[in-house]
Simulated assay, not measured.
Amino acid sequence: MPTELPILNPTGPLMAQPTDALLDEASRRLQLELPPSYREFARRYGYGLTAGLFMIAVPVDTAGAEWSEDLVERSAELAQELAASVDGKYISYKPDGTEERVRRLVPFGASENGDILAWDPRERAPDGEYAVYVIGARKYGVSRVAEGFAEFLNKVLEPNTGGVLARATFTLEATFEPRAARS
């Protein structure tokens, strides 16, 4: 399992990089120790579009913000969306999901196509990483795609997105497009 983050080429000046204090506060509020590779990613890159497809939420200072892509707030929104799909019975659990698993997942991002990225807090490795799951767009499929966040990022840069997205037949670029995480 790759434990080092891939090098992403920023397309502009980096912004919205959280401090250790913001990361610690997010960890406390989520009741989840944030994985080391995620913490490194958040401090290194901040908020933005990863590999032209994935928005990874990071902790941001929301004081005075009209809106934000704060990790805790975005995670709660996506978890609510998952719970509604379970309650409404419009989710496919194949190949790796169950109702119980989906209810406990902790979302941390999404693709531009509507896929949800989440950690399973019960699947924590000795190195502090959590298994990464992708819930397909329109809640079509729950797939365990990586043993940790760094492995997930490395896989999405492989041909056909490294199998992270079930029907992908394209290769993503190692880019990072910085974006404001609040206004």
Rank of each mutant, 00 (worst) to 15 (best):
E69S: 14
T175H: 02
P2T: 15
A168T: 03
R74I: 12
R101F: 00
I91R: 00
A110S: 13
P107T: 02
N9L: 12
L23K: 06
A76M: 09
L49K: 12
G52H: 04
D87G: 08
R43C: 11
T19D: 11
S92E: 13
R182P: 04
F152R: 01
E4Y: 11
A65Y: 02
L34T: 08
L165D: 08
V58A: 04
L157T: 05
M15D: 12
G141K: 02
I135A: 05
K94C: 09
V134G: 08
V86Q: 03
E129Q: 04
L23V: 04
T161Y: 11
R104N: 05
S37V: 03
G163T: 05
P107H: 00
E4S: 14
T3M: 13
G109N: 08
M55E: 15
L165C: 10
R103W: 00
E25W: 08
A76S: 11
N154D: 12
A42Y: 07
R124V: 11
R29Q: 15
L157D: 02
V132M: 01
T62N: 05
E40C: 11
M55P: 04
S37D: 06
Y47G: 06
T161V: 15
N9H: 15
P2E: 14
A181D: 01
A168C: 11
A125N: 11
G148M: 10
R44S: 12
I135C: 04
F152W: 05
E158I: 10
V58N: 02
V58Q: 00
